[in-house]
Amino acid sequence: MLLFGLVLGVSLGLGYVIASRSGSLLHNKMLPWIMGRTMGVAAYLTLTALVAAGIWLRHPWRTTFRVPTPETLVRAHVALAAATVVLLIGHMTSLALDKYAGVGWSGTFVPWHAQYRPTAVALGTLAFYAMVLVAGTAVLAGSIARRVWFPIHSVSAAIFCLCVVHGVLAGSDGHALRWIYVATGALVVVVQVTRWTARYAAEHSELEPL
């Protein structure tokens, strides 16, 4: 809970700073718009951390570092997931409520129903549904989703890609934020690729993969 609050606070703050620094908030003082932008950026940041923590959890290199311990890491992963979901819901409701955004309720939930950049918004909608699937099965792991939650978890790779594209295309400030997209994308790609290669090396050195 503490971790969750911390994550939420930090990401919201960062999201606001980034969104306001990119300039798009200055022209529009409407509250839903500000909130939508802030939470969108914040959700993107938590998602990146979420995915990175998830990959790192099963990264062969992790054991060379004592901190964070695997326990902290899973807990952080869960807290980040919860924060992402909350921010996402905030992002979607604020933009659906914003009369000037050109998205509306149907644009939010039905792909290609937004007036504003329909394809870009649709990608976000699709990512949201995929995320509901991944998070839902994870929450139900052990009860209804038993073991299938784990294979379903690999859908997250697609979610992350969808979110990057959605952010770049739908964000009214894609240009100003490009360094953030590049840095976060590169981070995730690097951890994932090194995990593959390190695991491949481990498999070929007679030891079982981690």
Binding site: L57, R58, T63, P70, A141
Partner: peptide
């Protein structure tokens, strides 16, 4: 080392340094 057991049954499972 997927660490799920330690989340779900945290009162009785610990993770070692490798998870």
């Amino acid at each position: 080392g997927h660490a799920i057991c330690a989340l779900m049954y945290s009162e009785g499972v610990e993770l070692d340094r490798w998870g």
